[in-house]
Design a protein around this nucleic acid. Sequence first.
DNA 1: TTAACTAACTAACGATTGTTAGTTTAATAA
DNA 2: TTATTAAACTAACAATCGTTAGTTAGTTAA
Lengths: 189, 189
Amino acid sequence: MKKETRKEEIIKVAAALFKEKGYSAVTMRDIATDMDMKAASLYNHISSKQDILKDIIIKLAEAFTNGLTKIKNSQATSLEKMEAIVALHIKITSSNTDGMASLNNDWMHLEEKLEYYLKLRLDYEDDIRFIIKDGVFKKEITAVSVDVILFSVLSTLRSLYLWIPKKEDLNPEKLAKELSKVLINGIAI
Amino acid sequence: MKKETRKEEIIKVAAALFKEKGYSAVTMRDIATDMDMKAASLYNHISSKQDILKDIIIKLAEAFTNGLTKIKNSQATSLEKMEAIVALHIKITSSNTDGMASLNNDWMHLEEKLEYYLKLRLDYEDDIRFIIKDGVFKKEITAVSVDVILFSVLSTLRSLYLWIPKKEDLNPEKLAKELSKVLINGIAI
DNA sequence: TTAACTAACTAACGATTGTTAGTTTAATAA
DNA sequence: TTATTAAACTAACAATCGTTAGTTAGTTAA
C-alpha cells in the first residue's frame, strides 16, 4: 500500500489543470489526456475527482496550520513572528504553486471535508490576529485597525501562488526579506 | 433610481452565483432558479452563459482602466497617486463585490474577449509599475524591488472583494485612509 | 379592435459529465 | 511453471449540460 507514485503523478497533473481552468472546468478526460491514458484508468489509482481535490487542499492547509503552531509557540517578538509567517507562506507556496491555486479558489467544492477546512482556515486567521493584537499591545505594531493589517498581509501572502511562478530565478530567502520589509515598513521613504 | 432591466437582474443574480461557486460550476438552471423562472426563459434576455460573464468582467476591467488613466494623468505625487489607486479599487469593488470575484477568478473562461481583457490587465499593471518606478526615482518610494511593491499592493487591492462584504458598516473613505496608511507606511511603529 | 411586442413556458436536442463493469496485458512472486 | 497483481484498456451507464424550437399569455401601440 505504498505504491503511490502513480497516484501522486495524477494529483500533480490534476493540480496543474485545476490552476489553469479551475476545478469544475477540468474533466477526468482532461486529466487522463495529460497522463497519456484513458479516463477510466485513473480510477485504478484514485477514488474520485473529489478525492483529488481533497488530497491537494487538505495537505496544504495542514502544512500551514503546523507551521503557524511552531511560530506562535516560539519566543520571537511579534514582528519576528510576522516575518516568520511571511517565510512560511513563501516556503509552502513555492513548493506547490499549483496546489495553492486550488486551496485559494476551489475550497468551496470540498463537500465532506469543507467544514474541516473552514475550521483550519478560521483558526489560522485567529492565530495571526492574536499575534498582531499582541504586537499592538507591546507597541511593536501600529494601532491602525487590526483587521486592516490582517487583511492586507494575508491577501498578499495568499496571492503568492500567482506571482512566484513568474520569477524564474526564485531565491526564497531574498524574497522573504524583501517582502517582509515592504509589508512591515511600507513603501514610503 | 431607475428600474433594473431584466437582463441586468439576471447578470446580478449570475454574478452572485459565480462568486459562490465559480463560473463553471454554475448552471443556467441555477441562475434560472434564483430568478424564479426556467432556464430556457433566460435566453429571452441574454444570448449565452458566456455573454453574462463577458458583461460582468469587461465592464469592470474598463472601469479600472478609465480610473487609472485619470490618476496617471493627474499632477499628484507618486505617493498621492498610489493613494488614489487604493481609493479607486475600494470604490469599484464596493459597488460590485460579486462581479469582482468573476474578474479575479473566472477571466480565463472569457474566450472571444480573453485577449482584450489580458491587454487591459497588462497595461494596467504596467501603468502602476511606472508610477512606482517614478516614485523611486523621485525618492518618494523605497528602492526595494519595484515588482515586490507592485505585487504586494496589487494583491491586497485585488482581494478586497473577499473582505469588503464582511464589513457590514463600510465607510469607503475611512477604509481608503487606513489601507493606504498600512500599504504606504507599513505596520511597524 | 387588431397587431406587435415582451417575457414567460414545455419539450427536447446532442454533447459531455463522472463513474462503473468487465477485460487484457505485462511484470513479479511463489 | 503458475498464480498474483498492477495498470492499462473498451464499452457503456444515467445524469446533467447549454441551448433551440415552438407556443402561450399578458401588455402596449396603432
